[in-house]
Each structure stands twice: as structure tokens, then as C-alpha cells.
Design a protein around this nucleic acid. Structure first.
Lengths: 196, 196
DNA sequence: TAATTTGCCTAAAGGCTTTAGGCAAATGCG
DNA sequence: CGCATTTGCCTAAAGCCTTTAGGCAAATTA
């Protein structure tokens, strides 16, 4: 019989496309088999199991996202960098909702450590070089930026902001303005209460 | 035969508990049937289908969360209110990860409009009364707060911040400080570029 | 008490996952 | 080139989840 030429690589890419079409959670080994015109069991020599497939899709998405972020950051600093970086996440999520969901999926610590997730963390830190923050505020800021970007994008995609004025593009712009202002003027920790 | 006394109500509660134990996505009609010591098919008279069950769990979680938020907000304003409100989300997510995930699940617009989700939006707006923001900045701020809270909590729960100093409680405190500062000093829109 | 409603059951079909074992195409080696 | 090994895909089968249909008996109502 003619071989279909399935590889782990092609399977992962097809899985990512499928995720964008039907949602990451709905990605199924069976559907992929259908698309490759191959019997389901055949795929289990390329992929350990369903979870393994999803992990591979997550890793792919993280790579793609990190590549885009790196490009966006090149040659930019300060607010320009902040905006470009933020837009990478938002645009990626809009273009590839399934992959974006995959990128958020929880990975086991070992896999996560070997993923492009660490590039993201490094880039966020690099982004902050345009602002004058020293440790530990830099870490706090890294975490806050991650929270805002992820939180905003996922609420926006989930329809959380829909059907209400003003439109979300305006809010996005103003949120970036606000973050920029905040980073330029990061508040000192509040005074501890006076000792008795 | 003795009746088990299953009701939609009890099913929803049990579903919420199950979600906290095994994750919202893993909630299954079959497992619930096992717990009620009843055949699976029997549950389909109380719940339309698996999706319907999950929706009911989401609505329950949204109610609980809104109740807690309302209580936290009572009698507080300014930063005190901000902190209390934010902690509601974080604490709820820690105590009830499955329910929290349920609360984030996407609902169809009609269901969402009838859910406690609208109470959340109203409360966030109420929270901002302690700061002097007028429309449309108030809306922008509402969306930003939602993003930060949700983003932070979901990254923290997903282990996104783990294994790195400083601990996440410190970051959380400093992020709330930063948000408070930001809201007290919300930046004006940047100057438009001069006309040619 | 009789009639109706309601709760739970058995049966059955359809889908996804995963493992085991087998044949044939590709590939590698004298 | 011819043979051996590897590798890709297949059939079979078991397990679990969902969902619908049809039925009996307990609970409720009249």
C-alpha cells in the first residue's frame, strides 16, 4: 500500500491548524488520522498519545510566539518596544486562537523548562531595560506585564469585552499608555507602619 | 428501588466539587453518576448534556465569586477595596481551581448576559468610584483590572511564576501597589502628532 | 385508591483512545 | 543485486464517555 508520509513534524503542524479551526481542547488524534487518510492506530507510532500530541502543539506555538516576539523587539526600546511586544501576543492570539490556547496550556515543569517559554521570560526582561527598574521590581514588572497581556488577550478573545463601547482597540492603546507610564514611574513600596 | 434523590442542583454542586478535584475539563457525567451510585443515563433527565452541566457549574462559580466580591467590597474604598476585591479572585482560584476555571469558561452571549458576570462588571466599576476616573477611562480601567486579576491568577495557578524568587505573594502586593498608583494617576492620552 | 408524573434502569449505537500483532514497503548491507 | 532489517500502516479489540429510546416502579396528586 502507498504510504501517507506521516511524520511527527507534519502531525504537529496539522494539529496546530486543527486547533485553530476547532479549538485546542477539541484536537483529536482521530480527526488528524482522518485528515491524513490513515487509520487512527497508525498515528500512535508518531505520537505517544493524545496528551503528547497536545504538548507538541504547545511547544510549537511557544516557538512561533517567541520568534515573533524576538523580531518585534529587535531595534526597539521603551514604549515602542512595549507596544510591539504586546501586539505580538494579541495578534498571534487573533490569527491563531487554537495555537494561542496551546501556548497557555500547562506543561509539566521539565518540559516547560526546555520550552521556548524561557525565551519569553528573557525577552520580557529585555523589554524592561528601556525602563529603570532594579530587582526585585523588575521581576514584579515582568510578572505584571505577563499578566496584563495574557489576561487582556484571553478576556478579549473570550468575548469578555464585547458588546460594549468603547471598542477594544481603544482600550488596548490606553492600557499600553498606562503601562508605559507605570513603568516609567514605578512606585516605591509603601511605608511600613511605624514601630510601636 | 430506592431513589437516589438526584436533582439538577445537587448535580451542579457535585460537579463543582469534582471540578476542583480533577479539573473543570475533566468533569464527566459518568463520574458524577458513579458518585451518586446511579446509572449514567439517569442523569440525562436532570441535565441536557455534558455541556449543559458545565454551563451550570460555570454559573454557580460566577455566583459564588460575585457573592464573595460583594462582601469584600462592602464598606471599603480606594486601595483597601482594590486589594480586597483582587484577593477574592486569587483566593477563590486557590481554594477552588476547578470552579475558577469554570468561571472563566466561555458562555454563549445569552447565558452570559443572564449570569452573575454582569454583577462582576458592575462591582469593578463600583470599585473605581474611589478613584477619579471619568468615561471612557473608567471603562479602560475596568478592563485593565479584569485583565490583571485574571491574567495574574491564571499564570500563577498554571505555575508560570514558580521556581523563581521573589515569591509570588510579594509580587502580588507590589502589583496591587502599582495598580493603586496607576489608578490615582491615570495618564492622559498622549498628544496626537502635530498636523502637517 | 386510581391516575399521572417522575426517577432510575436496561439496551444500544457512536465516538475517541490506546495496545497488540501482522504484512508489506523502504532502506541498508554484503 | 538480493537479502535482512527497519519502519509505516493496517486490522482487531478492549475500555471509557456520550446520548437517545423505551420501560417499570415509586412518588405525588386528585
Amino acid at each position: 500500500m502507498v504510504r501517507a508520509g506521516v511524520t511527527t513534524e507534519r502531525l504537529t503542524r496539522a494539529g496546530a491548524e486543527l486547533a485553530d479551526e476547532v479549538g485546542f481542547e477539541q484536537v483529536t488524534v482521530s480527526e488528524l488520522a482522518r485528515r491524513f487518510e490513515v487509520k487512527v492506530a497508525s498515528l500512535y507510532s508518531h505520537v505517544k498519545n493524545s496528551q503528547d500530541l497536545k504538548t507538541k502543539i504547545s511547544l510549537l506555538a511557544l516557538e512561533e510566539l517567541a520568534d515573533r516576539a524576538a523580531e518585534a523587539l529587535a531595534g526597539r526600546s521603551g514604549k515602542e518596544a512595549l507596544t510591539a511586544f504586546a501586539n505580538v501576543y494579541r495578534d498571534y492570539a487573533r490569527e491563531h486562537p487554537g495555537r494561542y490556547a496551546a501556548a497557555q496550556a500547562r506543561l509539566d515543569p521539565e518540559t516547560a523548562a526546555a520550552s521556548a517559554g524561557v525565551r519569553h521570560a528573557r525577552m520580557t526582561r529585555a523589554l524592561l531595560r528601556g525602563y529603570e527598574l532594579s530587582e526585585p521590581d523588575q521581576t514584579h514588572a515582568v510578572r505584571m506585564l505577563g499578566s496584563v497581556f495574557h489576561g487582556y488577550v484571553s478576556l478579549e478573545m473570550g468575548g469578555g469585552f464585547s458588546h460594549s463601547a468603547p471598542d477594544t482597540q481603544q482600550t488596548w492603546d490606553r492600557v499600553l499608555d498606562a503601562l508605559d507610564a507605570l513603568l516609567r514611574n514605578w512606585p516605591a513600596p509603601p511605608e511600613p507602619p511605624p514601630a510601636p
